[in-house]
Design a protein around this nucleic acid. Structure first.
Lengths: 230, 230
DNA sequence: TGATAGTGTGACAAATTCATGACAAAAATT
DNA sequence: AATTTTTGTCATGAATTTGTCACACTATCA
C-alpha cells in the first residue's frame, strides 16, 4: 500500500518534482542528493523502492546499483533508474546490475507513477487469510494454527502475527520500526528492543520443529525470514 | 465445491476469456455485459462470487459494488474487482465499498484462479438444516436434538445455535464479534464477554458425553471447534 | 588485542485475557 | 400467578502475555 521510496537525485528541482509525485501517489519519499547520503539514510530506513539517477556526483548510479545488489541486505530492493534524454543509457548494463525498470527524463508523472506502481505490485505480498507454507512450516490464519514437521507450534498472539508477517514477506529484511508498524500497529509506543525479545520468543517456539534459524538477524538492519542460513 | 460466478464485463473478448477460465476451474460463469443486466440476472440466481469490471457503461463498477453491499440480500457476496493496467484504481475506495480483492488486466489465468479460490474459501459456510456429525457428536437442526455417545445433550436455544454454528464451521477460529454476528444476529447489543459465558455453558453441557474440550479457546483470537486438543 | 555498538537472554512486574460462580432481569412454561 | 428456564452482566481470581531492564554475548573495526 504505502511505501517508502528513496529518491537519489542530485538536481534539487527534479528531486522536488519526484518527491511531489511520490507523495501524491500516496507514498513516502526519502530524499538523498548523492549515493553516499542515500547509503547513510538506509541505515535508518530500508526503503521499498529506490529511484536512482544514472548520473550522480561521486559514486554514480550504476556503481551504486551494483553495490546495492551485491549486499545481501539491500539486494532485494527494486531499483528504477532515471536517465536524461540523450544521455546514452545502456539498458543492458542497467539490467545487468539489477535495475528493475528505467524512466527517461523528462518524464510524465503518469508514467512514473505507473512504473512505481507496477514495480511495487510485483513485490508487495499482502497479509491474507490464505494458508502459507515456507520451508516445511505451515501457517493457517483461519484456523490459527502453525505446524512444522508434524508438530504443532504454540504461539502467543503477538508471536503469531509476527510470524504471519514474516511468512507473508519472506526473504526481505525488515527493520525494527517496520515490524512495529506492521505487526504491532500504528499507534503504539513501544521500544525498538522489544522486537528483539519477541524475535527470541518466536525463535524459541519454532525450535520445537527445528525451525529456529529460519529467522535471521541482519546486523545493523533488522530481521529476515529466509531458508538460507548464512 | 462448484460455485456460480457472475461476470460483469462489457468487453466480449475479455468476458469470454474470463468465462473460459472459470469453467476450467470447475465453476459456472454467468455473463453480464453491464451492471443493469447483472442486476436482472441476480433475480434468478444469486451468485457465490462476482467478478466486476471497474469501468462499465452506465452504472460503473464502484457504484454497482456499493449498491450490492447496501442490499441485505446481496451484501455478503464477495466481489473481485477487475481493473485495466494504468487505469487509476483507488484501492482504498475499492475496499471501502467492500471489494474483497482485485485483479489488474491483463491477468494471468493462474493468478485469477488463485484469487477466486482464495475468496471462495474465505466465505464462511452457511448453517444448513442438514444433520451434522463431528467427532462422535451429532446435531440435528430439524429435531433440535444433540446426541453424543448415545447420550442426549440438553442445550438452551442460544447454546444450540452456538454449537450449530461451530459444527458448521469447524476447525476455524471465530472471534467473539463474529460469533455475536452469526449466532446472536446482527441487531444485538451484547457484550463480548457474554460469549465466554455461553461457551462455558456449552462446554459444561457437552461434558455429559465427554466432548467438553471439543471447543478450544485461542488466546487473543477467539474460539474454535476442533478434534485436536492442542 | 581492545573498544564499541549491536544483539541474545533471563527475569520480572504490569497488563491483558480468560474461566467461573453468582445474580437479577427477562422469557417461557406450568 | 407462580415456577422454571434462559440470558446477559459483573466481580473475582487464575493464567497467560507483554514490555522493559540488566547483563552476557558477538561481530566489527581501529
Amino acid at each position: 500500500m504505502s511505501a517508502n521510496i528513496l529518491v537519489v537525485e542530485d538536481e534539487p528541482a527534479i528531486q522536488e518534482l519526484l518527491a511531489l509525485n511520490i507523495t501524491q501517489a500516496g507514498h513516502h519519499p526519502i530524499r538523498a542528493l548523492s549515493a553516499e547520503i542515500a547509503h547513510d539514510l538506509m541505515r535508518e530506513t530500508i526503503p521499498d523502492l529506490i529511484l536512482l539517477d544514472w548520473m550522480l556526483p561521486g559514486i554514480n548510479g550504476l556503481e551504486f546499483a551494483r553495490k546495492l545488489k551485491s549486499d545481501a541486505l539491500t539486494k532485494n530492493i527494486p531499483i528504477i533508474m532515471l536517465t536524461a534524454r540523450g544521455e546514452e543509457y545502456d539498458k543492458v548494463r542497467g539490467l545487468e546490475v539489477g535495475a528493475d525498470d528505467y524512466v527517461t527524463k523528462p518524464f510524465s508523472p503518469r508514467e512514473l507513477n505507473a512504473r512505481i506502481k507496477a514495480v511495487l505490485r510485483r513485490r508487495a505480498p499482502q497479509m491474507t487469510d490464505d494458508p502459507i507454507e515456507f520451508n516445511g512450516l505451515r501457517l493457517d490464519p483461519t484456523t490459527h494454527r502453525v505446524i512444522g514437521n508434524q508438530k504443532t507450534i504454540d504461539l502467543g498472539p503477538t508471536e503469531f502475527r509476527l510470524l504471519h508477517f514474516f511468512m507473508s514477506n519472506a526473504e526481505r529484511v525488515h527493520t525494527r520500526s517496520q515490524l512495529l508498524d506492521k505487526v504491532w500497529g500504528d499507534r503504539v509506543f513501544v521500544e525498538d528492543r522489544t522486537v528483539d525479545v519477541h524475535i527470541r520468543r518466536l525463535r524459541n517456539a519454532l525450535s520445537v520443529s527445528g525451525h529456529e534459524d529460519l529467522i535471521q538477524t541482519v546486523r545493523g538492519a533488522g530481521y529476515r525470514l529466509s531458508a538460507q542460513n548464512s
